[in-house]
Design a protein around this nucleic acid. Structure first.
Lengths: 240, 240
DNA sequence: GAGTGGTCTAGACCACAGA
DNA sequence: CTGTGGTCTAGACCACTCT
């Protein structure tokens, strides 16, 4: 264990060293980290210094501590995907619900200009294009298109395995962990096609949610455009 | 300085004791806290324990540390209001802009049923009702109604002093610090009235942003409904 | 009992601000 | 120069998990 010499406080260097190992895939979600004492010995520092580094990682949801057991790289639970990344709620304040979905299409195609920019792809790169309707409480609410690079998700288009919670699939099957998403919400009018899928009238107001998701290393891996029937559902955001 | 005995770790008790002083108004935004050494002496603990308590407060944006000077209760800068609480951005990715606004009306009235629920008021309580258009880049973009309890903001309706950044006014003049906001975003169609104010067509898609804001102590103090022309602007949200 | 994380201490030294 | 926060150490003891 060696740390870049002289750049900032030790605890920060150690934090970054650990992050690098996770980004690089040496430690994968669910793996246990070396104990604080072992890390400290490895770096030749005191346990308190390692502790401060790990404190930061815990605050960032990168690792989880279990007293008496150890420290683990965080995994994408359904709970996290639903409560942390999914912000569509019932107007009545109902908690987010697990969704079901009907797959409309899932195919591989050449990336278009818009995809290239979002996903930082080279021209002629291929993407997987998932198109589906998501149901909340047994009614169609969200018409959604998900674009991911084929290169990272080999066989996804052919497998036909498209669960509702995609991020767990990404993590478990393809080793891609979503760490940060940026969403842009705007208002639009339902097109005839959208209206048909969502069982609403053309011209009805629609929440359009565009999401760009990236991994811990900052690599963009998903572009998603969700059209949400806004009659009974809203987008919720809490700022502290 | 006395701390509730026996309830949880010391650093947590100390953190809560400090929070209580801020909530109670003993320490107001901009005030300096006692030094860590003095706090430690007052509580009869080591400096490290106080430090851990203050670490938590820093992470929550409640206080700010300045090396060599001291630790201060956080203040609402224009920067914070604009970059932390205001999530409307240009479609082109432009940073948030300071807004100008035209006041349409600012009056006191009896709280309606909806206001009572949001603001936890008693029947017959009075509220200040601010109605205005906010401009971004010299064009009307947001039609906004802000409701606050008259009791907390004595003289606001009469003063006619309604700056664009309200939260600094709330803090400086009325001693009310906004700490947390919850926003619900939905899509609507512009009414004739809305369309006139925003210089758009009736029936155009509109982002409706409903905000409930509360103080550090959890007291709701503002209800705000903003109707945003969604042609050139979007609501942006980053989730990590 | 051995090993883990969780809390707390007492003290050292550094970096920075201000008189 | 003094006082502040910022980093780091070495060690103590506790709470918890697992064997």
């Amino acid at each position: 264990m060696n740390v870049t010499p002289g750049r900032g406080p030790l605890y920060r260097q150690i934090r970054e060293w650990i992050v690098a190992r996770i980004v690089h895939g040496d430690w994968r979600p669910g793996d246990i980290l070396p104990s604080e004492i072992n890390l400290a010995a490895g770096f030749g520092v005191s346990q308190g210094t390692v502790r401060k580094a790990v404190d930061a990682l815990v605050a960032e949801n990168l690792v989880i501590r279990h007293q008496g057991k150890g420290t683990y790289v965080a995994v994408h639970t359904p709970h996290r995907e639903l409560f942390h990344f999914f912000h569509v709620l019932g107007r009545d304040g109902a908690k987010p619900q697990p969704t079901t979905s009907q797959l409309i299409s899932c195919r591989q195609r050449r990336a278009e200009k818009e995809d290239l920019g979002c996903l930082h792809l080279r021209p002629n790169a291929r993407v997987v294009d998932i198109f589906r309707v998501r149901n909340l409480r047994d009614r169609p609410v969200i018409l959604e298109r998900v674009i991911v690079p084929s290169k990272l998700f080999q066989g996804l288009a052919e497998s036909g395995d498209v669960p509702n919670e995609l991020y767990q699939l990404f993590e478990k099957t393809y080793g891609v962990t979503i760490h940060k998403v940026v969403e842009e919400i705007s208002a639009e009018l339902a097109t005839v096609e959208t209206a048909r899928y969502l069982d609403i009238k053309p011209g009805a107001p629609i929440l359009a949610i565009e999401r760009r998701a990236e991994t811990l290393g900052g690599m963009p891996v998903e572009f998603r455009r969700s059209l949400c029937d806004s009659r009974d559902y809203i987008y919720s955001n809490e700022i502290v």
